[in-house]
């Protein structure tokens, strides 16, 4: 974690400039310029679900005493709170570790599908052919987030940064890197 002159975290750590991180395939001398996660707005669904579940559990406590004993109610509540916490933790991990990384040499997409399946896609800057941004809808416009597709030449896999904040800034950064590399 030796690089990164002035690190800056924006939109709840979903847009980090010069982040203080390292990743598995980090090459010495590689400078990490951007770390991208899905915009926090796209994660609202599990936050709301958790709150609703908590309310449901709280309400159930008014009915349960007619069926269960005090110790059973205690165990039931413990289970329910632990399950809700696990749901929150699972969703958080899913958000936190699904990242896009832009370095001075390549762009990397790290995906953990349902936490259990790991997929790391890398595209070297000299293999990048086209960058597209897809952003449409009320909330995307309001909160400025969208999906960036990085198309590569040949058989190399394409990279997709889904629902990231400031997609136009990301494209700008990658384009600057490409210009430097191609000397234009």
């Amino acid at each position: 974690m030796e690089n990164n002159p002035k690190s800056e975290n924006r939109v709840l750590f979903s847009y980090c400039v010069y982040p203080q991180i390292k990743f598995e395939t980090y090459e010495s001398g590689e400078k990490i310029l951007l770390l991208l996660r899905a915009h926090p707005f796209t994660q609202l669904h599990w936050v709301i679900s958790s709150i609703i579940l908590l309310i449901v559990i709280f309400s159930l406590n008014f009915i349960l005493p007619s069926f269960l004993s005090v110790s059973q109610i205690f165990v039931f509540n413990s289970f329910m709170f632990v399950f809700i916490f696990s749901f929150i933790w699972f969703s958080f991990l899913n958000w936190f570790f699904n990242v896009g990384i832009v370095t001075n040499k390549r762009v990397i997409d790290v995906d953990f599908h349902s936490i259990l399946y790991k997929e790391v896609t890398t595209a070297r800057l000299d293999k990048i052919e086209d960058i597209t941004v897809k952003s449409g809808g009320y909330f995307e416009s309001l909160f400025d987030f969208g999906t960036v597709f990085v198309q590569t030449a040949g058989t190399e896999a394409n990279v997709e940064f889904a629902d990231i904040p400031f997609p136009s800034k990301v494209i700008e950064s990658i384009n600057k890197l490409l210009s430097k590399r191609h000397g234009t």
Binding site: P19, Q20, S86, L93, F97, I115
Partner: peptide, 28 residues
């Protein structure tokens, strides 16, 4: 309750293992 607790323990162990893999993939 016992069955659920055992299943939850297994789940917690799997998640913990996976988190260590995730931490190795992305260190911060």
């Amino acid at each position: 309750a016992v069955l659920l607790a055992i299943l939850y323990l297994l789940y917690a162990i799997v998640i913990s293992k996976q988190v260590s893999i995730m931490n190795r993939t992305l260190e911060d």
